[in-house]
Nucleic acid binder design. Structure first.
Length: 680
DNA sequence: AGCACGCCGACT
DNA sequence: GTCGGCGTGCTC
């Protein structure tokens, strides 16, 4: 009877594979394959794992070896390329392979009760001939777009390309045209129809894109992959991708780990967007993994952005990535909005609005045009205080203020969700006159409504859109023209193109200029460009003036604003890169961050100190352990230790050794390591 | 991470 | 007398 040893990985933090014995029940049972799922008993639990290797012998004593209970032959094995991607991610981010390979699989596949795999697939939209990838209703591309699409689709082998173009320059058309060419060419032949992966930051903000794709490729199965899918849908879509039936896969960051056996092109839209970074568990960058995947498969990858990440920009300067630029807006007669600074020292604001911005709003109201006020701070006021004794609304569980939410009559901590009724008087001295300090979207809304009683004002932020579907309803109402002045946080910065919007006011952007996070200005620039792009995307009306963006600032002379006004990302990015090079910051060096948390700050710091001392670190810069800027969240104290290295392989080699040492340290602190951290 | 075992403090 | 706190140790 056939038998062998299987190396199995499981979804546990244990950094090793486990050997199990397999014995055929009869001669007809197929031999287990690498990439197949197996059911087995682990400790006293029943779990599902994945075969990552097979052999005749095991180093594990025979009496400890258990038999696998069942091999899941129904599911075609995950490919060696896919496993190699997981292995790379596991090694690079210093996590066990099983923690990378298993959690991304649909829950049904990992459940102990097997479900039939061959049912329900047909629900995915598919009409017409499966291999007819000809797009219909091809939009007229301008020469720059056509050239870009040809260059992308015509590239052979690994060809990373930055598609650089302002909002409205028609990047999406380029992606779709390149996709159409690659699907039509269908290099693998009729039995292996080519697949295309399109990553977007947040799928809910790009419903038009999915509709666009389906309309443009009526004969092609399109699958979406994102965290909002119901379990059944997720299973169907994942399987359609794994079985090679879905040919266009549109998804968020998690889709980068999907099984795509015939992948021939990867597109990353808005590649600079922070949501490509997973911020818990396996803290991966979907953008970086996508580039690795394209390299592994020798296929083209397109990174699209109006404000590329400095990492990507750096690669174009060094020649590692090719840069294709779309200089014009693709919509006929559309022009870039006119951006102006308003000096808040000269034009003192009342209710948070300078007189210049107020008259611009008035003008739009008279003309029947829409305005957007961007204020990235929700709530009524970030803190309330007592004038008499100096009490402020500190959170009792976090190093932060409780934010005043006036309509809800609550003080709320945005970090631990603690809620209190608004105190009627000062808790320490009894003074009844507690003052809100600063201004959030609720307070702005109140002030505007008082200033323009006739105007239809709508606020869109996380608080006003808590109920499911309410965000969509709010955006629809803006599109229908039922709103004169829209107030929004970063929620309104992405995706939506408001046809009748001709004024964008940006309030209070200055804090990011002086942040300790060296990436803050890069992010602010991207955000300002993105918000500015909400206006003036459509062709200007006959005789109408260009859309306007007004930035209220106390630092009008700051070079960042000068660059925004000139729509000059090139020069801004180049100067930021020079600063980074001089200060020895990424992308010129590589970083990792060891975080620790515990009930007592002392415990966390002590662990980090031990971690710093437990290994020789030649070639590595090891900084001192420090409490995090927001030290306490939900009664847990947090600290971190930054390490830097001028070479990526050098950092990787060090981290592997270091992790082995760290696992030996006995501590009550909870800790984790992050490679290429983004907020420090 | 689970999950069990084990050894001390306040409960019906 | 037990329930349960979380320290410690193990998982092929």
């Amino acid at each position: 009877m056939k038998q062998s040893i299987l190396q199995i990985v499981l979804d546990t933090p244990l950094d090793s594979s486990f050997d199990y014995r397999w014995q055929a029940s009869d001669d007809s049972e197929p031999t287990p394959q690498i990439g197949q799922l197996v059911q087995l008993s682990f400790g006293r639990r029943e779990v599902v794992g994945m075969i990552v290797g097979t052999s005749a012998e095991s180093d594990v004593p025979a009496e400890k070896l258990k038999n696998v209970q069942a091999v899941r032959h129904q599911l075609p094995p995950l490919s060696p390329q896919w496993l190699a991607l997981c292995r790379f991610a596991a090694d690079y981010y210093q996590r066990p392979l099983g923690e990378v390979a298993l959690p991304g699989l649909p829950k049904n596949l990992r459940a102990l009760t097997t479900v039939a795999l061959d049912r329900g697939l047909k629900k995915l939209q598919q009409s017409g001939a499966a291999h007819d990838a000809t797009p219909i209703d091809v939009a007229q591309l301008n020469p720059a777009q056509q050239q870009a699409a040809d260059a992308i689709a015509g590239a052979s082998g690994f060809a990373p390309t930055l598609l650089y173009g302002v909002t409205g320059s028609g990047k999406t058309e380029v992606y779709l045209q390149a996709a159409a060419q690659i699907l039509a060419h269908n290099e693998g032949g009729a039995d292996n129809p080519s697949q295309i992966l399109i990553l977007v930051p947040e799928i809910n903000l790009t419903p038009q894109l999915e509709g666009n794709i389906r309309a443009r490729f009526p004969g092609v199965m399109v699958a979406t992959l994102h965290s909002g899918l119901a379990e059944g849908e997720r299973m169907r879509h994942w399987l359609a991708a794994h079985l090679g039936q879905a040919r266009i896969i549109l998804g968020t960051r998690l889709a980068v780990l999907a099984s795509l056996p015939h992948l021939k092109l990867i597109v990353i839209d808005e590649e600079h967007d922070p949501s490509y970074k997973q911020q818990e568990g396996l803290r991966y960058s979907a953008r970086d993994l996508a580039v690795w995947r394209a390299h592994q498969l020798g296929i083209p990858i397109v990174l699209g952005s109006a404000t590329p990440s400095l990492e990507t920009w750096h690669h174009t300067q060094s020649g590692r990535y090719r840069k294709l630029e779309l200089r014009e807006r693709a919509v006929k007669d559309a022009v870039l909005p006119l951006v102006r600074r308003i000096d808040m020292e000269r034009d003192k604001p009342s209710e948070g609005l300078t007189s210049t911005l107020v008259s611009a709003l008035k003008q739009r109201l008279e003309r029947g045009e829409q305005s957007l006020l961007f204020l990235n701070r929700r709530g009524y006021a970030p803190v309330i205080a007592c004038d008499a004794c100096g009490w402020v609304s500190n959170c009792t569980r976090c190093t932060s203020f409780m934010v005043l939410h006036k309509p809800e009559h609550r003080l709320r901590c945005h970090h631990c969700s603690l809620e209190l009724r608004i105190p009627k008087s000062c808790p320490t001295c009894g003074n009844v006159d507690l003052q809100p300090l600063g201004r959030g979207t609720q307070r702005l809304e109140e002030g505007l409504q008082a200033m323009f009683p006739e105007a239809r004002v709508l606020r869109i932020d996380a608080d006003s859109t808590r109920r499911k579907g309410s965000a969509q309803a709010a955006f629809d109402s803006v599109h229908r023209g039922e709103v004169d002045i829209l107030i929004g946080t970063q929620m309104v910065a992405k995706g939506h193109d408001f046809k009748n919007l001709t004024l964008v006011g940006i309030l209070n952007p200055d804090t990011a200029l002086f942040s300790h996070d060296y990436r803050a200005s890069e992010r602010l620039f991207a955000q300002l460009m993105q918000v500015a792009g909400r206006a003036g995307r459509a062709a200007q009306k006959e005789g109408g003036s260009a859309s306007e963006v007004l930035i209220q600032t106390r630092y009008p002379q700051h070079p960042l604003y000068a660059a925004v006004i000139a729509h000059d990302y090139d020069r801004f990015a180049t100067s930021l890169l020079e600063e980074r090079a001089q200060a020895c910051l990424p992308p010129y060096i590589y970083q990792a961050l060891l975080r620790a948390e515990a009930k007592e700050l002392e415990t966390a710091i002590e662990f980090l100190q031990q971690a710093a001392n437990c290994i020789e670190h030649g070639g590595i810069t090891m900084h001192d352990p420090i409490p995090m800027t927001m030290t306490r969240v939900a009664n847990v104290d947090r600290a971190q230790l930054l390490i830097e290295c001028p070479s990526r392989p050098g950092l990787q080699a060090f981290l592997t050794d270091w992790m082995a040492q760290l696992r030996q340290i006995r501590t009550r602190a909870k800790w984790s390591l992050e490679v290429d951290p983004v907020d420090i």
